[in-house]
Design a protein around this nucleic acid. Structure first.
Lengths: 234, 234
DNA sequence: GTAAAACTAGACGCCATTGTCTAAAACGTC
DNA sequence: GACGTTTTAGACAATGGCGTCTAGTTTTAC
């Protein structure tokens, strides 16, 4: 009696018809309203209005407000995890032109996983309703930020083994990479704003520049010098 | 339901008497409930119960729910700003033992300004109600994180002029210092947890270690070399 | 001690919201 | 065209919170 149907899968660009479209419309509208008003402040009527759907339709699909909320969170979580996985697969694996490639990766990560719609939604909801639904966001914590750190850590280890980086603790470096990438955007992230492409680019460049000063093998112009930074870390 | 029936006591530990005590008790209780439930989810009755005060007393002091909310936010903001100012005044100004002193400062900053009660409250409320009360949190944005970055930037500039650091952009370095300091605590901060002293110490040490690898003058063992990092920045 | 001020407890009207119910309408399929 | 399903609009009771009011009690001030 729970849900005999598989959760709705969104096919972008192709407008689906029928009840499936209704379900997605409701989910999107509910995500919008829940994000703006929080769980307590969101009203079913407003969600129905935004979704261009009768209130009763919402109650037909999702038994009550809480069921709808859980469905919305899981839907957004799935999208966000898929996007994170996709972005992680573009991590540079070559040692040449490290600075530019890492910068481009940081831009992708910030733009598509952290500053995008779903990222803002999840961060906001985790803070506001995280205590009330611990089980709900636990999987996000593990599959979202947890996976990000673990995966980045492994990727940095690979780069270090290739000799492109000099890293003592890969987990710490992974967290610091993410933190540095957000350093210039923290305020905007907190206020829910969306950075421009220029701001994303600049933030990533600042972050990678500092990251490589701390962890990078000096390349190109310092090729004649022995790597000084290795002396510190070693 | 909730077992928070003891009247709230201010930081001093000295229970004041009279209406002033009531006002503070109400402010503390309201901060607690607003933080947990958000503005919409918080009920005056619960605040009254937590404050051990009649509901009517709240309406006597603060005309309506919104007035109370604004008073609470301003109260917490004032405390947080005073604390931030106090911590900033302990920034190290000597170049010797830079790593330990910066680490201790980072611990103080994280412990007393970012991970403490007021810091969590403000971050949460800014995210949830920031859009609804832009004017209210604008001053926080300027006097809180804004002041932090500006002040840290100036302090780093002073250290750089003394030759203790090699920094190109002081504002960027200030933001990165804060970001690195939070790198290991991000998850806990997001979930509203409170780090232990050991975690604070370790996070600060990791942060400063990396910060000095990127910006620090190489000391002691590299004293004979001219500063190599300046070659990159220049 | 007394008077004013503050506090309490409870009841009250008002309004918004939730979730149910019903009858009508739209939709798709055969 | 007939039929079953889905959607719609509106009415409906029930709940709960906000803000007011009142009557009675406590605290403070003089």
């Amino acid at each position: 009696m729970k849900d005999r149907m598989t959760p709705a899968v969104r096919m972008t660009g192709h407008t689906q018809r029928g009840q499936c479209a209704k379900r997605m419309s409701i989910l999107d509208a509910a995500a919008d309203v829940f994000c703006r008003q929080g769980f307590a402040g969101a009203s079913i009527d407003e969600i129905a209005a935004v979704a261009c759907v009768s209130r009763q339709t919402i109650y037909n699909h999702y038994r009550e407000k809480e069921t709808l909320f859980v469905a919305v969170v899981e839907d957004v979580m799935n999208r966000a995890n898929a996007m994170l996985f996709s972005v992680l697969s573009t991590f540079p694996d070559r040692a040449d032109n490290m600075e530019d490639e890492l910068t481009a990766f940081a831009v992708r990560l910030n733009k598509n996983c952290i500053c995008n719609h779903d990222g803002k939604f999840l961060r906001k909801l985790v803070q506001t309703e995280g205590e009330r639904y611990p089980h709900l966001f636990e999987s996000w914590r593990q599959q979202g930020p947890g996976k990000l750190t673990t995966a980045l850590s492994a990727l940095f280890a690979r780069l270090a083994h290739k000799g492109a980086l000099t890293i003592e603790d890969f987990d710490v470096a992974a967290r610091q990479f993410v933190a540095l990438g957000n350093a210039d955007l923290q305020m905007m992230i907190l206020l829910g704003g969306t950075p421009t492409d220029e701001e994303l680019e600049k933030a990533a460049r600042n972050a990678v520049h500092t990251f490589l000063k701390a962890y990078g093998r000096l390349e190109a112009e310092e090729a004649d010098h022995p790597p000084q930074l290795a002396a510190i870390s070693g």
